[in-house]
Write a protein that binds this DNA or RNA. Structure first.
Length: 541
RNA sequence: GGCCGGAUGCCCGAGUGGACUAAGGGAGCGGAUUGCAAAUCCGCGAUUCGUGGGUUCGAAUCCCACUCCGGCCUCCA
């Protein structure tokens, strides 16, 4: 059964065969080199869970290909050039989003909530939200950010998470190439436009024809004398007053919305690469324009497989700022959800299904993860005892993301689970199906009070493999703050004392108190332990 | 208007012609265990897959119509 992905370019499921496959034709992913470019965040504000659904999808894709033995180069841009907010005009006559962000920052400063020193500086504002994004992404375990953190030089970091403001001269270079090759022209208004008539495949990705686009039944393409076709999009706009501007052969101004991804992806991955991901809203126009630019400039096929995530809904409604029904990562962690819970909540539905996000779904995620983590603890304990006796302690430490996945001989049940997990993932990343395989496998393991060593070791290894993709079991949870931790330990002592005196009323009261602090208490014959909960106490309805 | 998805138990969500008496998770209920909990274990729950027709020996799965929900059609992940 080959690995199949839905390729937006051809509107169908296709066998995934890397451009640089491994030596085994029957399993071309093993030993292959794969390049993935993911459209990342814009840094004018905190990213919300809808954004992160898309980023996490690309992370699951990347991790799954790694599990299957590919060497993946994953690149994700962080857009720090402001784009327009006004959707009536395609040519940048609206307000710049960074300008809006700057205004907000200034408001905050007036209110005494200064987040940065100089809110007038759009670069500083972008930096601020870029840092916030990286923090959130680390919490959620994005592999691309782990790569970024591991990279030691500015240049290598810039390949992994490039920022457009650092590559403007390269944009200009590509625009010049496009002009030289007859794909771009300078209009009477001085703006440089892409000539979509010069690129017959324009519209292929979204299933639009030029005919439909020119009619603009949605009413949003703008007729403009300077453009040859209403759907021609701008590559460079001279504007001496724009909030962010750079010198160019066409005057001081700023680049178009799409050029950054063409330039930066080619820069990091070459003129042709395997996979390009993004949210469904990117299909048109962003990715359409990227293809036109990239292939127009290089004359080579740009991306082999395009994959797009469906949008996230919240409580059955489209997420939007006006409704106020969106969450940021920090909103949810403040509520008391551990990041692994958020990760699970956002990856456990297949990327191509529309997904409805609810707080309830996070509680469910917490329960599911707890089951797996308990199993992992049990396996580690069973394995550690023997390994320690044998002087072999290599199982205490979880595998790092980039560490190769070993292949010892696994028990048949474990092999079966991995095969079923892979089968589901091979079917266009069917995570729900893969999780079903995992839980079906995990169930009988709970029954054994004590597992025999070889079984435990094999099971542990298998769980680590799937967790390379899931990233929720062998990762550290958020630690309690020091003062809270002391408070908890204090309460635990009091409770122990109460229990020794058989004062169960007091003991139960303290347990409730601990619960509201986000701590779960467990009484066992061996003693009483506590641990932080993955989710806050459920509010009674 | 054009294009594209979706509707499965209380909730989330697999399954896309016969092994479906419909996976898995969550919540619930009864029992074991526990001072009480938690965890774990045992047991219970869709004769049915939005509605109506059709094709077929056989349909959640294919076809047609309808209803509802959502997305894109130059802000957006």
């Amino acid at each position: 059964m080959p690995t199949r992905f839905y390729n937006t370019l051809h509107h169908r499921l296709e066998d995934f065969i890397p451009l640089h496959p491994g030596p085994d034709a029957a399993n071309p992913i093993l030993g292959s080199q794969i390049g993935i470019y993911s459209c990342g965040p814009t840094v004018y504000d905190y990213a919300h869970i809808g954004n992160f659904r898309a980023f996490l999808f690309s992370d699951v894709l990347r991790r799954y290909l790694e599990l299957r033995g590919a060497q993946v180069t994953h690149v994700m841009n962080m857009t720090d050039v402001g784009h327009m907010t006004d959707d009536q005009l395609a040519d940048g006559a609206g307000r710049d989003k960074l300008e809006v962000a700057v205004e907000k920052m200034k408001e905050n400063k007036k209110d005494g909530k200064a987040l940065i020193e100089n809110p007038n500086d759009p670069f500083a504002v972008a930096d601020f939200f870029a840092r916030a994004f990286l923090q959130d992404a680390r919490l959620l375990g994005l592999g691309v950010v782990a790569d970024y953190d591991l990279a030691t030089t500015h240049e290598s970091k810039e390949r992994i998470i490039p920022r457009p403001t650092r590559h403007i001269p390269e944009f200009i270079e590509m625009i010049q190439t496009l002009m030289a090759r007859g794909h771009a022209y300078k209009g009477d208004d001085g703006v440089v436009y892409y000539d979509i008539h010069s690129f017959p495949a324009y519209g292929k990705l979204s299933g639009n024809s030029l005919e439909q686009l020119s009619h603009g039944a949605g009413g949003r393409t703008n007729e403009q004398a300077a453009k040859k076709h209403p759907a021609d999009f701008f590559l460079w706009k001279p504007d001496a007053h724009h909030i962010m501007r750079w010198p160019s052969p066409w005057g001081e101004g700023y680049p178009g919305w799409h050029i950054e991804c063409s330039v930066m992806s080619i820069r990091a991955l070459g003129q042709s690469f395997d996979l390009h991901t993004g949210g469904e809203d990117n299909i048109h126009p962003h990715h359409e324009c990227e293809i036109a630019q990239s292939e127009g400039a290089t004359g080579k096929p740009f991306v082999k497989y395009w994959m797009h995530t469906r949008h996230l809904m919240v409580n059955g409604e489209k997420m939007s700022k006006s409704r106020g029904n969106f969450f940021t990562i920090r909103d949810l962690t403040t509520m008391g959800f551990d990041p692994v819970v958020i990760r699970w909540g956002l990856i456990s539905t297949r990327y191509r299904e529309p997904m409805n996000f609810t707080v309830q779904s996070l509680h469910e995620a917490a329960a599911a993860i707890t089951t797996l983590r308990d199993l992992a603890d049990k396996l580690i304990t069973a394995v550690a005892a023997v390994d320690e006796a044998a002087g072999d302690g290599d199982f205490a430490v979880p595998d790092g993301l980039s560490e190769a996945v070993h292949d010892p001989v696994l028990e048949p049940a474990d092999q079966r689970m991995l095969a079923e997990f892979n089968l589901a993932m091979d079917d266009d990343l069917n995570v729900s199906g893969a999780l079903a395989a995992l839980f079906t496998w995990a169930n009988p393991l709970h029954k054994h009070k004590k597992l025999a060593y070889p079984q435990a070791r094999s099971a542990l290894q298998s769980l680590k493999k799937v967790d390379h993709v899931l990233g929720v079991v062998f990762v550290d949870l958020q630690a309690l703050p020091q003062d809270k931790q002391r408070h908890v330990e204090d309460l635990m002592q009091k409770r122990d004392a109460a229990r020794q005196h058989k004062d169960f009323a007091a003991s139960d009261m303290i347990r409730r108190q601990l619960l509201s602090l986000g701590v779960e208490v467990k009484d066992t014959p061996a003693g009483t332990t506590w641990r932080p909960r993955l989710a806050p106490e459920k509010l009674s309805q």
